[in-house]
């Protein structure tokens, strides 16, 4: 069976977008234990880059930095204004999830309000040039997109293994009350986690903006796939999320190739339900 080269590239690009979502999502989930639907603000990153490059004429790297930063700030304020008060009230994870859907709706409508609901493409490429490998062509932008989650994973691993930040984050994930007792301001710390997680989410919005354009609803669409990938890989498991992303993207692209592109969404949601029924801890077991 000859698998088209383009299919493999598409698979890797989709997987990378999902993987970026799962990285930030799992990071936040580890410390807060709720399905943060407002993680779908990914499109903010894409739109900030779009605005900064096409309207303000900024340098592309400055724009990307602002896009990531803006998403992080929005995530942080969503935490301060909505999730922190709810945490203080000891709201259930379901209540938090419903509130986060509200946050996502608000951000999404503000983006649609500012930039209209239309589908838009990024004005220029991130990197110019193409590379020839194995008889196919891949643009340099695509290569960067494929490597982005691994760069982020590397950064996160360094942050978690080498700094006290990581130790604090893991102690909160293990036992929040104990972390409080030893004097960690967990409420404040989770705010930083929200900033980092949402910034990564913004990066995924940027990367999928470069690979397939931007629209206000793309954040929630991308995010839902990210959450499916997270659950396939085991919720809260950072590396599992990446494996789940590649698996999900693989199945989606095979379905799109052999059956039809329109059925891939249905298949991914059926996968979500199947995984939740058959193996709710995800396909990868995290050693405790």
């Amino acid at each position: 069976m000859q698998v088209p080269f383009q299919l493999i590239i598409n698979m890797a690009i989709t997987a990378s977008s999902y993987a970026l979502i799962t990285l930030g999502f799992n990071l936040i989930y580890r410390n807060t234990k709720f399905f943060n639907m407002s993680h779908g603000i990914a499109m903010v990153g894409g739109y900030v880059v779009f605005f900064a490059t096409s309207v303000l004429g900024w340098n592309i790297f400055l724009s990307i930095f602002s896009g990531i930063f803006a998403s992080g700030i929005i995530g942080y304020w969503a935490y301060v204004l909505v999730f922190l008060p709810l945490r203080k009230r000891k709201a259930s994870s379901m209540t938090m999830m419903i509130a986060s859907i509200g946050v996502l709706s608000i951000v999404q409508s503000i983006v649609a309000f500012l930039f209209t609901n239309k589908f838009q493409t990024m004005p220029n490429d991130l990197l110019i040039g193409k590379t020839h490998i194995a008889g196919g062509i891949i643009t340099n932008t695509q290569i960067l997109i494929i490597f982005a989650p691994f760069i982020v994973l590397l950064g996160m691993t360094l942050l978690y293994k080498k700094t006290s930040f990581g130790k604090i984050a893991e102690s909160i994930a293990d036992n929040e009350n104990l972390a409080k007792i030893v004097g960690i301001n967990t409420d404040e710390f989770i705010g930083y986690i929200f900033f980092i997680g949402s910034a990564i989410s913004g990066l995924s919005g940027i990367s999928s903006g470069f690979s397939s354009g931007i629209e206000p609803g793309m954040g929630s669409g991308l995010f839902i796939k990210g959450i499916i990938a997270s659950i396939i890989g085991g919720i809260g498991n950072i590396r599992g999320g990446i494996v789940g992303s590649f698996l999900l993207s693989f199945i989606e692209n095979i379905v799109a190739w052999k059956i039809s592109g329109e059925w891939k969404d249905i298949i991914s949601f059926i996968m979500l339900i199947a995984v939740l029924i058959l193996r709710p801890t995800g396909i990868i077991n995290e050693k405790k």
Binding site: V82, A91, T95, A99, V103, N117
Partner: peptide
């Protein structure tokens, strides 16, 4: 019409967040 449609979405998002926060 289009702005009103956006506002509808913003409104129900706001309704969700505000009700859960201030008037559960």
């Amino acid at each position: 019409q289009e702005v009103a449609a956006q506002m509808r979405q913003a409104l129900y998002g706001l309704a969700l967040v505000f009700i859960i926060l201030y008037c559960p």
